[in-house]
């Protein structure tokens, strides 16, 4: 994340050294060279706008019903305009919080999943908005990256 390439084209992102790598011991170029493409880069797929994209870690299991689990890696793009149905990070009570944006009649609301919390009216230009979540990446057991028990007390 420390580097900030702008619109790095696939053609230039192939390492310069690959010319030498693809030659066999005989020194002849591989016939496959003409069909070579840059490998798929998951980072470029998930991060469309590096300047406005941030990663966070989800804390708490209240949104499990929506497929958002404790420990998931959240990809947040601040450049996206929030719409009903989006998951947002918002600063609520001084804390970065994940909520669902919903529309009821003409009014927008930040809807919590945790029982006992009130929905919060949301304005179009709301100061509390931090960013829109575009991906939640969930580790499955085979990765060995299962998060420790949620520290979030109900």
């Amino acid at each position: 994340m420390s580097m900030t390439p702008i619109a790095l084209a696939a053609s230039t992102s192939a390492p310069a050294s690959s010319d030498t790598l693809s030659r066999g011991a005989s020194g002849f170029p591989s016939p496959a060279d003409d069909y070579r493409e840059a490998p798929l880069d998951l980072h470029h797929h998930l991060v469309r706008r590096p300047a406005s994209t941030f990663f966070m870690r989800l804390e708490g299991d209240d949104h499990r019903h929506a497929g958002l689990h404790h420990g998931d890696l959240l990809v947040i793009d601040r450049a996206i305009s929030p719409r009903p149905g989006h998951w947002l990070v918002a600063a609520i009570d001084g804390e970065l919080s994940v909520l669902h944006l919903e529309r009821r009649e003409a009014q927008l609301y930040l809807a919590p999943s945790r029982p006992g919390l009130a929905t919060l009216p949301f304005e179009a230009d709301d100061d509390r908005l931090w960013g829109v979540i575009c991906y939640a990446i969930h580790a499955l057991p085979a990765t060995g990256e299962e998060p420790a028990e949620s520290s979030c007390l109900r």
Binding site: M56, R57, G60, H63, L73, S97, V98, L99, L117
Partner: peptide, 15 residues
């Protein structure tokens, strides 16, 4: 180092 280290990402609390 919220933006440059995997193990120091900010935490966002589910509500």
């Amino acid at each position: 180092c919220y933006t440059t280290r995997w193990d120091e990402l900010p935490r966002a609390r589910a509500r």
